[in-house]
Simulated assay, not measured.
Amino acid sequence: MSFGPGREGLAAEAFELWRHLVAPDPPAVPDVELTFVTGEGPVPPGATVVAPSPTETYALSGAITRAVLTSLIGRRILLHAGTIDTPRLGVVVLVGPSGAGKSTATARLGAEGAYLSDELTIIDPDTFEVTGYPKPVSRSIPGSRAKRDVSLPSLHLMPACAGGSPDLIVLLHRDRGNGSENGPPGLERMPLASALLRLIGQTSSLNRVPGGLAALARLIDSAGGALRARYHEASELADLLDHAPAPISEWWAEVEACRPSHDVQPRDLMLAPFDQALALETGVLVLARREAGHLEGLLGVIWELLRVHGGLSLDLLQDLVAEEIGPHPNAARRVRSAADRLISGGWVIRA
């Protein structure tokens, strides 16, 4: 990192916040190089503007995180998650959108072990080992929704640059009310389809990781299934995780695109382009760019028939559905309705 004129104060504060990651012998050609300026006057090409403000350290760490993330796209599973490694719980990944309490929960649980990240969790898609990104912890400024970074020593956190594969994958659901709507704190294993959809929503460019969707399913399997934690305060999480429910496992298989077995005719139904897909006990889960969908029941049957056979007329599709799942008195209407839903959802198109 380098800092332009007027950013000397930010440079000194950034050094204190990030000093545990400062390389004693930096490489001649760094993987990521950033220059920060005030934005007052001409901005050099490639420079990042961080205007002076109470939130400037948070803005700086955001720019660093985006640069690191960009450099790893297509090579790692990148989760919007905090990760800690404790002797009691092992490697714990805490997943959730902004506001779910990741940073607070990470700091609370990480005090008894090693801190790997509060925001970006980097996972090898083959070994599932976690690469640490122990950035300063982002905390809300009292009386404001804005955030500022806090040093690790001030939170009694010990940074770690590497960890093993996750032992627990926890999707955080923080109840900010009095708990009357969602019930008391609790921890439950999630069905595979639900866990995949939630996790995909917290990944960056998973579709660009070769076999990324299958790797994510294997990762969930290796941790005994993902957990959903419903809680009010971070102090409740430790006790919940100490009594995690028994591991679960569900069947799944990776599926690939097939070449059409015959010439596609105008108005035939055919699959929209997709990146990766899994067959599940409950249907098919499809990943197309940044969108993921769980196609259950008849929707999954139709999608799979179109994958295998290529373009099909509605009449032929109805015949194949009957062969697959048996006749139904309202088969034509049901297949037509399901096909319309797949088309409106963007999973099926007409030739």
Results as ranks from 00 to 15, higher is better:
Met1Phe: 09
Met1Tyr: 04
Phe3Trp: 10
Leu17Glu: 09
Pro26Asn: 11
Phe36Ser: 06
Phe36Arg: 05
Phe36His: 02
Glu40Ser: 10
Pro42Glu: 09
Pro42Gln: 09
Pro44Trp: 11
Ala47Pro: 06
Ala47Gly: 08
Thr48Arg: 15
Val49His: 09
Ala51Asp: 02
Ala51Lys: 13
Gly62His: 04
Arg66Ser: 14
Leu72Ile: 07
Gly74Ser: 03
Arg76Lys: 15
Ala81Arg: 01
Ile84Gly: 07
Asp85Gln: 11
Thr86Ile: 09
Arg88His: 12
Gly96Tyr: 00
Gly99Gln: 03
Lys102Phe: 13
Ala105Leu: 10
Gly110Gln: 11
Tyr115Gln: 06
Leu116Gly: 13
Ser117Phe: 04
Glu119Cys: 00
Glu119Trp: 08
Leu120Val: 03
Thr121Gly: 00
Thr121Ala: 12
Thr121Asn: 05
Ile123His: 02
Pro125Trp: 12
Thr127Ala: 14
Val130Phe: 06
Lys135Ala: 15
Pro136Cys: 14
Val137Pro: 05
Arg139Ser: 00
Pro142His: 13
Val150Asn: 01
Leu152His: 15
His156Ser: 15
Ala160Tyr: 02
Gly164Phe: 01
Ser165Asp: 09
Ser165Met: 07
Ser165Lys: 13
Arg174Ala: 05
Gly186Asn: 07
Leu187Trp: 02
Leu187Ile: 12
Glu188Val: 00
Leu192Cys: 09
Ser194Asn: 11
Leu197Pro: 02
Ile200Arg: 04
Ser204Ile: 00
Gly211Ala: 06
Gly211Phe: 12
Gly212Gln: 06
Arg218Met: 03
Leu219Ala: 01
Ile220Met: 08
Asp221Met: 00
Leu227Trp: 00
Leu227Phe: 00
Arg228Gln: 03
Arg230Val: 01
His232Asn: 12
Glu236Met: 11
Leu241Ser: 00
Asp242Lys: 07
Pro245Lys: 04
Pro245Asn: 13
Pro247Asn: 06
Ser249Thr: 14
Glu254Gly: 01
Ala257Gln: 14
Val264Ile: 14
Gln265Ser: 11
Leu271Met: 11
Gln276Gly: 05
Leu280Lys: 08
Thr282Gly: 02
Val284His: 01
Glu291Asp: 14
Ala292Ser: 15
Glu296Ser: 12
Glu296Asp: 02
Leu298Glu: 10
Gly300Ser: 08
Glu304Asp: 15
Glu304Gly: 04
Leu314Ile: 13
Leu317Cys: 09
Glu323Gly: 03
Glu324Met: 15
Gly326Leu: 12
Pro329Leu: 01
Val335Met: 10
Arg336Phe: 11
Ser337His: 11
Ser344Asp: 15
Trp347Glu: 01
